[in-house]
C-alpha cells in the first residue's frame, strides 16, 4: 500500500476546514467546568496546512458584516454586530466609555462649604452630573487651577451661601446634597435635567450571545425537565405528533450562560452550550446629552481619526527616511 500523506486522504477535505475545526474557529464552547476555544484565530496562516486561507479580505468583511437593531429608544440602544472581531468590537466599547467627549464639570471653586460632604467629594459628585449639551458644538479647552477666577456676580454665589447657612442649622445629610440641585433651578437649561441621579451614568455592557444547540432530541419527560432546569426560560416544548413532544430553543437571547441546563448527570451530552465568536450584543445607554446611535457613530469616528492620524505619521516617517538614513548609517557604522 503506497504511503499517503494524512492531508491527502479522501476523507480530509482540502480547501475547507473539517466541521469540528470550523466549529472551534467560530464558537466558544461553554462546558460545565470552563469555557474553551475562547480565543480568536487571527493569524493569516493558521490553517495553511489544510489549504485554507485565514487572511483578511476587506470585501469578505463588507459582505458578511451586519448590524441589526433590536431596541432603540431615547436613551438606550441595543443592537447586534455580526461578523466583526472582538478586537474591533472591544475598541468601540473602550472608546465609548473613555474617549467620546461628554460635557461635565471639571473644575469647582468653593467659596464656602460647610456641608457634611467634603469639598473634594462634592466636586467629584458635581463632575459626575451629565450636562445636556452637545459636546460637538464646543472646543476642548483645558484650564489650570491657578487660572480660575471667582466671579461672584456672574455665578450662583448668593444662592450657595443661602443654602449653606440653612444647612448648618439643620445639619441633615440629604438636605446638603439636594441644596445644590436647588441652586441650579435658576439656570433654565439645567433646571430639568441637571442633577438626575437616575441617569447620571453612561453604562455600556457588552455580551456575547448564548447559543444553545440540542445534541439529541430531548423528548417527553426529559424535555419537561430541561424546560424546568433553565431559570431564564430559554427552552420550549413543541409537539412533534404521535403524542410526542420535543424541547426546542425558543429564546436564545434570554440565555445568561448560567450553565444550569448542562448541570447534572449526562446533560452535557444532551445540550451543547456555545457562543458565536463574532456576534456581539451591544447595549449603549446614553447619559442624555446625545442620542445613543450618535454616540456609537462618534465612537467609530474617533477610531477612524486615530487611524488617520497615525497613517499620516507613518507616512511622514516613510518620506523623511532619506534624512534619517544617514543618522542610522552613522549609528550602524559605529556599532560595526
Amino acid at each position: 500500500m503506497p504511503r499517503v500523506s494524512a492531508l491527502e486522504m479522501d476523507d480530509v477535505p482540502m480547501g475547507q476546514l473539517p466541521p469540528h475545526i470550523q466549529l472551534q474557529r467560530t464558537r466558544v464552547f461553554c462546558a460545565s467546568d470552563a469555557p474553551t476555544q475562547t480565543e480568536n484565530i487571527q493569524y493569516s496562516g493558521a490553517y495553511a496546512s489544510m489549504g485554507v486561507d485565514n487572511s483578511f479580505r476587506l470585501d469578505d468583511f463588507v459582505k458578511n458584516f451586519r448590524v441589526e437593531v433590536a431596541r432603540l429608544d431615547e436613551d438606550d440602544i441595543e443592537f447586534d454586530m455580526i461578523g466583526i472581531d472582538a478586537a474591533l468590537a472591544n475598541a468601540f466599547r473602550r472608546i465609548l466609555i473613555a474617549e467620546v467627549p461628554t460635557m461635565a464639570i471639571e473644575k469647582v471653586l468653593f467659596a464656602n462649604n460647610t456641608s457634611v460632604i467634603p469639598d473634594e467629594v462634592l466636586a467629584h459628585r458635581l463632575g459626575l452630573i451629565p450636562i445636556k449639551a452637545d459636546p460637538r458644538l464646543f472646543e476642548y479647552m483645558s484650564v489650570k487651577s491657578d487660572q480660575l477666577e471667582w466671579l461672584p456676580n456672574g455665578s450662583e454665589f448668593q444662592l450657595v451661601t443661602d443654602n449653606s447657612t440653612s444647612n448648618s442649622n439643620s445639619n441633615s445629610k440629604p438636605k446638603t446634597y439636594t441644596s445644590f440641585s436647588r441652586s441650579q433651578t435658576s439656570l433654565p437649561e439645567f433646571s430639568e435635567d441637571s442633577i438626575a441621579l437616575k441617569h447620571n451614568d453612561i453604562t455600556i455592557a457588552k455580551l456575547g450571545p448564548g447559543q444553545v444547540v440540542l445534541l439529541e432530541n430531548v423528548e417527553d419527560e426529559k424535555a419537561e425537565e430541561l424546560v424546568k432546569k433553565c431559570p431564564v426560560n430559554v427552552f420550549d416544548i413543541e409537539d412533534i405528533g404521535e403524542g410526542k413532544r420535543r424541547a426546542t430553543v425558543a429564546r436564545p437571547r434570554a440565555c445568561t450562560l448560567c450553565r444550569e441546563c448542562i448541570r447534572g448527570d449526562d446533560w452535557e451530552n444532551r445540550v451543547a452550550l456555545r457562543r458565536v465568536k463574532n456576534h456581539f450584543i451591544f447595549t449603549i445607554e446614553s447619559s442624555g446629552a446625545l442620542p445613543p446611535e450618535v454616540l456609537f457613530t462618534e465612537a467609530v469616528k474617533v477610531l477612524e481619526s486615530k487611524c488617520e492620524q497615525h497613517t499620516s505619521v507613518i507616512w511622514t516617517d516613510l518620506t523623511e527616511d532619506n534624512g534619517s538614513t544617514e543618522l542610522k548609517l552613522v549609528i550602524a557604522n559605529q556599532k560595526a
Binding site: L58, F61, V62, F65, R66, V67, E68, V69, L72, I77, F79, M81, I84, L88, F92, E293, F296, T297, V300, K301, L303, E304, C307, E308, T311
Partner: peptide
C-alpha cells in the same frame, strides 16, 4: 479605517 467606515455606514443604515 475602511472597516470603520463600513461599520459606520452599516450601522447608520440599520438605525
Amino acid at each position: 479605517m475602511v472597516m470603520c467606515q463600513h461599520v459606520r455606514d452599516t450601522f447608520d443604515k440599520a438605525v
